Simulated scan of single mutants.
Amino acid sequence: MSEPTDYEARLQAFVGRELVARRPGPDPVNVPMIRHWVEAMEDGNPIYLDDEAARATGRDGVVAPASMMQAWTMRGYAASVRPDTAPAGPSASDDLTGLLAEGGYTSVVATDSDFEFVRELVPGDHVSVEERVESISPEKKTGLGTGRFISTVKTYRDASGEVVATQRWRILRFRPAEKPAPKPARPRPAINPDNAFWFEAAREHRLVVQRCADCKSLRHPPGPACPQCGSFQWDTARSSGDGHVYTFTVNHHPRHPAFDYPLVVAVIELAEGTRLIANMTGVAPADVEVGMPVALDWLDDGDLSLPIFRPKES
């Protein structure tokens, strides 16, 4: 077994050490706070607010919900933000947090809490808490990132020092996993009344070609009038998606982060006779050839769908 590193030894030196010295809660157990708690939790058990109902169960009177144990020792919002209420000098907890940050474990998430209750709390009880480090795990890989599980034991006592509950508390301190930046969306086309139909069909993965309603000639890109006969009447024909590479270019620069480079931009001549500009997929740029038979595919980018073409299987 290899010797622990200096950092590991410094970290493990915290095991068994007191993190939080015994500290009393700001207020004794009281019925108004119990009332707020049970209303927020929608807990209708009458033993928390009704003395008679509590005595009917053999208790001397109302008791606090066990789940409130930790709440009685919380310092409150003001104490957490006002510098004049902070303890003088760094605490052992601050020292451990600093050492973990030194190792890059700067993020934290609570993983589990296990309570053992010795007795119920009643109004007038004044609860204190103290905390010790139980264990610090070796470095582990998790879905959140590489980190260490820190297990501590919190001991809750009443005013006489008797233990009323213990809580095993575990957190994960971790180095956030580096996430690749999301790929930006492709630049959006300028959609107008003349071409909106084409993009709407593309969203349904239909490749259509504008067709003159009078002379039946096909045209692309779309336009308001037929260049052959001048008619303003038109409908569409659905393309089979078959075609061939009429010409192409391979783009290297300038680069846009929404695209993968080198980028093949091809003029595709469809079987129906019209041409359109589209990207190629499923082929190395060096293997693209003029005349190469292609078949239709689709690229979906959010609310935008565009036809792309891949080599047609022979």
Rank of each mutant, 00 (worst) to 15 (best):
V250K: 00
A225W: 01
L218P: 01
I268A: 11
A266T: 11
G243D: 08
V250L: 14
I268T: 12
F232E: 14
G230K: 01
A213M: 01
H253C: 02
A225P: 00
L218E: 03
P257L: 08
G241D: 10
Y246F: 15
A266W: 15
A237C: 04
F248D: 11
A225T: 07
H253Q: 12
Q233F: 11
D242S: 13
A237P: 00
A225F: 06
V250E: 14
L263R: 01
V250C: 13
A213D: 03
R219C: 02
G230Q: 04
V245D: 11
W234Y: 13
S231T: 10
P257V: 15
C215T: 08
C226D: 05
H220D: 04
T247L: 13
Q233V: 11
A213T: 01
R219H: 02
R238E: 12
L218S: 02
H244P: 02
P262E: 03
T247C: 14
P262Q: 01
P257T: 15
D235V: 10
Q228R: 07
V264F: 04
G243K: 12
T249L: 15
G241W: 09
D260P: 09
P222D: 04
Q228S: 09
Y246T: 07
A213F: 01
V245A: 14
F248E: 09
W234P: 00
A225S: 06
G241S: 10
A213H: 00
H256F: 11
D235P: 09
P224L: 02
Q228P: 00
V265W: 07
V267Y: 07
H253V: 10
A213V: 02
C229M: 08
S240M: 09
R238N: 03
C215Q: 02
P227T: 02
D242W: 08
C215K: 00
V267R: 09
P262M: 02
Y261G: 08
T249P: 00
V267M: 12
S239H: 05
P221C: 06
Y261W: 05
G230R: 00
P224E: 06
V245I: 15
R219F: 01
H253E: 09
V264S: 03
G230I: 01
A266Y: 14
K216S: 11
S239P: 08
P221N: 07
C229T: 11
A258P: 01
Q228Y: 06
H244V: 13
H244Q: 11
V250I: 15
T249E: 14
P222G: 06
P227D: 03
H252Q: 13
L218M: 04
S217W: 00
V267G: 02
V265S: 07
Y246S: 12
D235C: 05
H244E: 14
C215M: 08
I268M: 10
T247F: 13
K216P: 01
A258R: 05
Y261H: 05
T249G: 05
Y261S: 09
K216Q: 07
